[in-house]
Amino acid sequence: MIQAASGFAALSIPITDAPSYAPSVICDKISGLAISNAILAGLFDRQRTGEGQEIEVPMFETAIEFNLMETFAGAAFEPPLGKPGYARIQVRERKPFRTADGFACIMPYSDKNWQDFFAFIGRHDLIGDARFLLLSERSSWFPFLYGLIAEAAPLHTTDEWVAFCDEANIPCMPVIDLADIGDDPHVKAVGLFETVEHPYAGKYHSIRRPASYSAAPFELRYHAPMLGQHSREVLLEAGLTESEISDALCESDPKVPDTQTL
């Protein structure tokens, strides 16, 4: 609902001629980040002033702000100088490209990047072409340029593209499935995942927080609670008496569900 209402779904119209949803609960997660930032700012203000305050973070408005960060463009002026949008991104040809054995994001960016790319794919006729020498000129030719990448990408394997791009300092990355992300060398090197054991559900993969602190290393202190596991504590904190809670709860301990339903 929020993706539709905030303009998020409509961002794909210039690309696919139809609105679409991001394949993620992205508005929920954006709002969570906004909430945590707002709370931290509120705590900082309380530390300085000694006074607290009520904080409201609406998902709808948060998603609109998030979308307009880079797409407000000419519509930010009054009267408008243009429609909202980001031409370099809202191009149907801008996407992961199919290589000879998979997919890769191949993204020449700088003036030199494009000249090196033209040489690699054998389009020497485009080297030095005034249309592509500078970003100010290239910005009108993104569909054509990304189309060149799409044509050339299947002629080489993903590893060959990565090798060339690394040497030429061109941004490039293989498209990695989430199911394989744990095998990524960098992910392994930084210890992003660990296998832990839940007292009821058994072993599972835990992902540490990406942020790190020199004086407070990440530590998993609690597992996800089972349904009703903390009902008694929550109700006591809400002011109910032990007898009232016992009357309200059928059992003092939560039932452990079958792991297949977790």
Results as ranks from 00 to 15, higher is better:
A4N: 10
A5C: 01
S6H: 05
S6D: 05
L11P: 03
I13F: 07
I13A: 07
I26V: 15
I26F: 10
C27L: 08
D28E: 07
L33I: 14
L33Y: 12
A34Y: 10
S36K: 10
A38M: 09
A41Q: 10
A41L: 11
G42S: 10
L43E: 09
L43W: 09
R46E: 06
R46N: 02
Q47P: 02
T49N: 02
T49M: 08
G50M: 05
Q53I: 04
E54S: 13
E54I: 11
I55D: 02
P58C: 04
P58I: 04
F60Q: 13
E61N: 13
T62D: 05
E65S: 15
E65M: 13
F66N: 12
F72G: 08
A73P: 02
A73M: 09
A73Q: 11
A75K: 09
F77V: 03
E78A: 11
P80K: 07
P80V: 07
K83G: 00
A87R: 14
I89D: 09
Q90T: 10
V91E: 15
V91Y: 06
V91K: 13
K95E: 11
P96W: 08
P96F: 04
D101Q: 02
P108L: 07
S110I: 06
N113R: 09
W114R: 06
W114G: 02
Q115M: 14
F117K: 05
F118L: 05
F118G: 03
F118H: 01
A119M: 12
I121C: 04
G122D: 07
H124A: 12
G128I: 05
D129P: 01
A130C: 01
L133I: 09
E137T: 14
R138W: 01
R138L: 02
S140P: 00
F142N: 12
P143D: 09
F144S: 01
L145I: 03
I149Y: 08
A150F: 01
E151Y: 06
A153C: 02
A153S: 08
H156P: 00
T157R: 03
F164C: 03
C165R: 08
D166H: 13
A168G: 04
I170T: 03
C172M: 04
P174W: 00
V175G: 03
I176P: 07
L178V: 11
I181C: 11
I181F: 08
P185Y: 10
P185R: 12
K188E: 07
K188H: 06
V190L: 11
G191Y: 05
P199D: 08
H205T: 15
I207N: 08
I207P: 00
I207F: 11
A211P: 12
S212E: 15
Y213H: 13
S214W: 01
A215Q: 11
A215R: 14
A216R: 14
A216M: 12
F218Y: 14
L220T: 02
Y222G: 00
Q229C: 00
H230L: 06
L236I: 08
E237W: 09
E237H: 13
A238D: 07
G239L: 06
E244C: 02
E244L: 03
S246P: 02
A248E: 11
C250L: 13
E251I: 00
D253A: 12
P257L: 06
P257E: 04
D258P: 01
T259D: 10
Q260M: 08
